[in-house]
Every structure is written in C-alpha cells, then in structure tokens.
C-alpha cells in the first residue's frame, strides 16, 4: 500500500529532517510511527501526503509514485495533521461537502457516511455551526469524518488521539480496524505508546531523522517488555 524507499528530506539552514528512511506498509497494516519531538515523524508524514517536497528517495502509494502522479496518489489516501487547521469560515457540513465533492462521493453515500460518523462522534448538532466556533477536539472529529467520508485506502494520521475524548478515541480505533479489515492501511504517528502497542501490528521508531527500528509489533515486544521499555532502550542505544 505504501512504500518509502531511501527518503531524504532536509530543511534549508537546518540540520533537522529525515535521512535515508525506508518503510513498507502492506494492506491490512496498522503501522505506528514513534519517536521523540523533532525526530522527523511529521516531516515523513508530510512527504508521504505530498505536502512537502523531498530531496531524495521514492514514495509509492498503491504502486504509484507520488512525484510522478501526485493526484492519483492523493485519491488513495486521507491525511490529517496533528493540529487540524480547517477552514474556519465554513460550517462543519460545508467542509464535509467540500471534501466529498473533491473526492466525487455520491449524494447518497455522503449522506449515509456523514450521518453515521457525525452521530458516532456526537457532533451532528454542531454541523451547521462555523468551524471557528469548534473546540480542538471537535475540529479533530470533523477532520476524521472528512477523512472517512471518502473511504480512503490509506489513512495517514499525525497524532490522531490528541484532543479526542475517550469515546471518540474508541470510535477512531474501531474505524481504523475496519479500514484494515477492508484491505486498507493506516500509517500514524503517536506518543501514546500503550495505544500503539495494543492497536498496531507493526511499528517503526525514528530518532534524529533516521529509522532505528521497525518490524512486527509481536516480534519487537515478544521479550515480555512493554513498547515503552523497548522504545527507551532502542533510543538510548542509538544515542550511544
């Protein structure tokens, strides 16, 4: 579903970025991407989402190179940043309609899906209000509904659980599992290692822009240690 080969991205005048990162995410994977602040998680996700240009490497989404055919790639996925700055001058329903129009979602499908997810996330009554009146959590929920409304094959999420109430977090986890059961894949960054350990089947750890560990979650935590212990161990080893 997603193949990243030798991705290198450096910012001008800064030592930060990502160096020679390679990953492969297969259909059905829920892939956690963990690392400390400034490690390069968001940079990687933004490169995958086509928001950032990168210096070297290849990113293939469903076999399509994002540099060669960005629009075909973007039709396959939905991306939600860590701080979803949504058009504040639109109402919630106008934003969802806009996204549905862009992805050419039919009238009946969009009605059904918006109704379903808005009810689940309990924001139906607020859909007629301007996004500027929404709290951070409500914006997050709206962004999630906009991602789910067009049934993407790949969901790219940057810190998706930040700002969500417990019920919404459960709904999101269920939606993630459902997408994977239907053959899709999830690639998301998180600092909540417990969630990553319970939810994901694969994990990658990044430090200072370099991938220092990746693989099956079961293999990584099979020694009886928690993901948190493994993370601390691996990060400290890489620092030595």
């Amino acid at each position: 579903m997603l193949t990243i080969e030798h991705l290198t991205k450096h910012y001008k005048g800064s030592s930060k970025g990502v160096t020679d990162l390679s990953l492969h995410i297969a259909p059905g994977d829920i892939y956690a991407f963990i690392g400390h602040n400034g490690a390069g998680k968001t940079t990687t996700l933004k490169c995958v989402a086509g928001i950032l240009e990168f210096d070297e490497g290849t990113i293939l989404i469903d076999g399509i190179d994002i540099r060669k055919d960005p629009l075909a790639c973007k039709r396959q996925f939905a991306y939600i940043p860590d701080n979803p700055d949504i058009y504040e001058y639109l109402t919630g329903i106008q934003y969802l309609e806009f996204i549905a129009d862009v992805f050419a979602v039919g009238a009946r499908e969009r009605q059904e899906r918006i109704k379903k997810y808005a009810d689940e996330f309990e924001i139906t009554a607020s859909l007629g209000d301007l996004v500027s009146t929404y709290s951070h959590g409500m914006k997050q929920k709206l962004a999630l509904i906009s991602a789910l409304v067009h049934r993407p094959k790949l969901l790219i999420l940057d810190e998706p659980f930040v700002g969500l109430d417990p019920k919404a977090a459960v709904i999101l986890k269920n939606a993630m599992r459902r997408i994977c059961e239907e053959g899709g894949a999830i690639f998301f960054s998180t600092h909540v290692l417990d969630v990553a350990e319970k939810l994901c089947n694969r994990v990658a750890i990044i430090k200072d822009g370099t991938l220092i560990a990746s693989g099956e979650m079961e293999e990584i935590v099979k020694s009886g240690q928690s993901l948190e212990d493994i993370f601390m161990e691996v990060v400290e080893d890489a620092g030595e």
Binding site: I93, A100, D101, A107, K115, S126, G128, D129, L130
Partner: peptide, 16 residues
C-alpha cells in the same frame, strides 16, 4: 455564534 441546532434531516439535502 454556535447554535448547535443542525438536524439530521438536513443531511438529506446534500448534493454532489
């Protein structure tokens, strides 16, 4: 101004 008064029925009017 948040009214919180959007009705499910209004979703029926959505068009492509």
């Amino acid at each position: 101004f948040a009214r919180h008064d959007y009705k499910k029925e209004e979703l029926g009017g959505l068009k492509r």
